[in-house]
């Protein structure tokens, strides 16, 4: 179990307990905590609806693969700290990660 701090677009912050041994990716964890992430593509790294900005701990994340970079390239508001939550599998070395959600579902 690790802790990850999540800031939503409204500025609210929440400290989450995140299990590392049940095979969920970070997008699925965020959905389990009821964040309204669309996850259109279901975790293939193609739709970019789970776009996050890593505020602290980026050095502990595995590097983006080409597919993720390609998808991030299509976004108007991505920068060097951008990641797709669905492409990150929480591990013990990610304790203390701080992320900001870039876009929650709009209707």
């Amino acid at each position: 179990m690790i802790n990850i701090t999540v800031k939503d677009p409204d500025g609210h912050s929440q400290l989450l307990d995140v299990p590392t041994d049940i095979g969920l990716n970070l997008m699925e964890v965020l959905k389990a905590y009821e964040y309204d992430i669309l996850a259109t593509c279901g975790g293939m790294g193609l739709c970019a609806t789970c776009h996050i900005e890593v505020l602290r701990g980026a050095e502990n994340l595995p590097e983006c693969n080409d597919n993720e970079l390609d998808t991030l390239d299509t976004l108007p508001d991505a920068d060097v700290n951008s990641r797709l939550a669905c492409q990150i599998r929480p591990g013990e070395n990610m304790d203390g990660l701080v992320i900001k959600l870039k876009n929650l579902q709009e209707t």
Binding site: A48, T74, E106, T107
Partner: peptide
Amino acid sequence: IPLFGLSPKLGPISDWNLGVEKS
């Protein structure tokens, strides 16, 4: 011409007086 892909939105469906829960 800004080309930044497409993203799905519930849009007008929410105005049709249907029961809607979590989009």
